[in-house]
Structure formats: structure tokens, C-alpha cells
Simulated scan of single mutants.
Amino acid sequence: MRVERLGKDKIKIFLTLDDLSDRGIKKEDLWTDVPKVHDLFNEIMEEAYEELGFELSGPVAVEIFALPAQGMVVIVSKGKEQIWADEETDEDLFALEVTLEESDSIIFAFKDFEDLIEAAKRVNSYLMYGGELYFYKGHYILVFDQMDVLDKNVDDFIALLSEYGEVSPISKAVLEEYGKVVVKEDAVKILINHFS
């Protein structure tokens, strides 16, 4: 489990499939097994408090992004929802609004262009189709469809990308609307041809 602060009132937690299986949770449980998910959320919040001093009170919005062959990203934001604004709330309690999304896309963000190029070189042999490249909020973001990875080597493919970048919870729809398209098709092969 990796926890990082995104702002004063927002954190991001990345849970690998191993983190989930260690807790006896499958990705499908997120949609069906409420007690297990509740226990997982409490554990996440304890770790966030220990590592970052992030404490819950009042309204909380939780976005859970299930990522193929990787695990999930949980974004927790506190104190932003207006639906509780007029209600009195106990300081020790928190209201919870959860959004669950599952994606067949593999999306990785790279802060450094050189890391992007190195990742492209390493994963090229795993691809039938080279994905798309966007620029969004200071990051280069590669987007792949799981079906583009040859011979179902998705785990190895993701492991290689993880050496150079990090899983991005940003959806392809957000990138298409707000990001800048750098290379729309076959991005990996184009990067290699121009920068190797």
C-alpha cells in the first residue's frame, strides 16, 4: 500500500493486487462485500493518519479506480461535498460518498520525458498497437488498451512501466477532454523512431 498527499484535504492510496489478496479481498468484492470493504477503508484511513496525519471528520468523498492487473487507486477528499453543508455533524463521525470505476485501459504517468522514452523502449516488444500519448498537468501519460498487449503478458508489461512511471487514476475520458494529445496512435513506436 502506498499513500501520498495530493493536497491539504486530499490523499491518494495505491493498493496492488497483492495488497488486496493479503487482506482476503478480490476486486469483485469492492462491489459486493460491504463489510470487507469497510474494514479495508478503515485500515487505509489508519495508515493515512499514521503516515500523513490525514484525519477524517465531516463529509468525505471516496473515488475508487480499479485498474487491470494492477490493483486499485483510492482518492479520498474531505470537506468538499455541499449535501451535508446545512446538516449538523458530529466531529467524530464522517459521511461517506463512494464512486467506483473500473477500466480496461492501462494508464501510466511519467514526470520526466527521458523516463517516458526508456519505458517505451522496454515495452515495445509487448505491444501489437502502441497506445496513445497525452500531456496533462505536467505529466506525459501513456494510455493502452489491455487487448493491445501481446500474449496476455499484462502483468510483465505493467511491471516494466512501473519501473519508469506510476499508475494514473485519471480516466481516458478526462485526458481526451482536458489533456493535450501528443501522439494519437501508435505512440510507443513513434517515440522510439524519433528519440532512439
Rank of each mutant, 00 (worst) to 15 (best):
Q82R: 10
L96T: 12
V123Y: 02
E97Y: 10
K80V: 12
E118C: 11
K78A: 00
A119T: 02
I117Y: 01
D155T: 07
S103H: 06
D112R: 14
D145E: 14
L116S: 05
E132C: 03
G130Q: 07
F108H: 09
L127R: 04
E97H: 03
T89A: 03
Y134P: 00
D155E: 05
K80E: 12
Q82P: 13
E132F: 03
K111S: 09
V98T: 11
R122T: 07
D115G: 05
E118H: 13
E118R: 15
A95D: 07
R122L: 10
E91Y: 07
L96H: 02
F144P: 00
D145K: 05
D156L: 15
I117V: 12
D90N: 11
N124Y: 12
I107G: 00
M128Q: 10
F135Q: 15
E91W: 11
K80Y: 09
G138Y: 05
E102F: 02
G131F: 08
D155V: 11
E91F: 09
Y136I: 09
L100I: 05
D155P: 00
Y129A: 11
Y140W: 14
E97M: 11
D90K: 07
A119G: 02
M147I: 14
A109H: 14
K121N: 15
F110I: 01
N153K: 13
L142G: 03
G138F: 01
S125T: 14
M128Y: 10
D104N: 05
Q82G: 09
W84E: 14
G79K: 04
L96Q: 07
A85F: 05
K152N: 15
G130R: 06
K80C: 10
L116W: 08
T99Q: 09
L150D: 09
K152A: 15
G79M: 11
D115N: 13
I117F: 00
V154N: 02
A120R: 10
V98E: 03
S103R: 14
A109E: 15
D145G: 00
I141C: 07
Y140K: 12
D92W: 01
A95F: 06
S103E: 07
G131W: 06
I107R: 01
Y126Q: 00
D104A: 03
I117C: 02
G79Y: 05
I107Y: 05
